[in-house]
Amino acid sequence: MTKHLILAALFAAPLTLAAQERYATRTGHISFHSDTPMEKIEAHNHKSTSVLDASTGAVEFAVLMKGFEFDKALMQEHFNENYVESDKFPKAGFKGKFNGLTADDLKKAGTKEVTAEGEMSMHGVTKPVTIKGTFTMEPTGAVKASSTFTIKPEDYNITIPGMVRDNIAKEITIKVQMDYVKM
């Protein structure tokens, strides 16, 4: 009997492996927006990467800071050189877990509100954050995740000089749009 149990357990292990549902993208769209009466700033990055393990809810995002494209070339240069210091801190990312998301949720068409808890890192600073987002499962089986949240530059040691303080919003809106494909 014991022997059978062990056998059953051993069989179960590969089964859990097979049940691991991973989704990934290399072309995630992350943008940020700063809106003040003085100036409107936005930048887009269409090359962010993310991997989602639906069986555990674990998720990771990474984005290259130099990949953000601005309307104005000089803004882009200042962003990389003076604000986020891309040469020293080339990547920003998030590593965490979706609460209450199961692999089955991603197989049913419809939408599902989720919360991700984890750590956001940028400009050499790592902070615990909780972010709300929405999963949209299309009838075709496509899995899309989107989220809008705000961050404060000073939380990540990004200092804004007094001279341009009125040109940059105190809270920057970040928009995330991921079109996952099954790995």
Partner: peptide
Amino acid sequence: LLDLLGEEEKT
């Protein structure tokens, strides 16, 4: 998890 994607191509 991101290691699963392998090395990024250098731009």
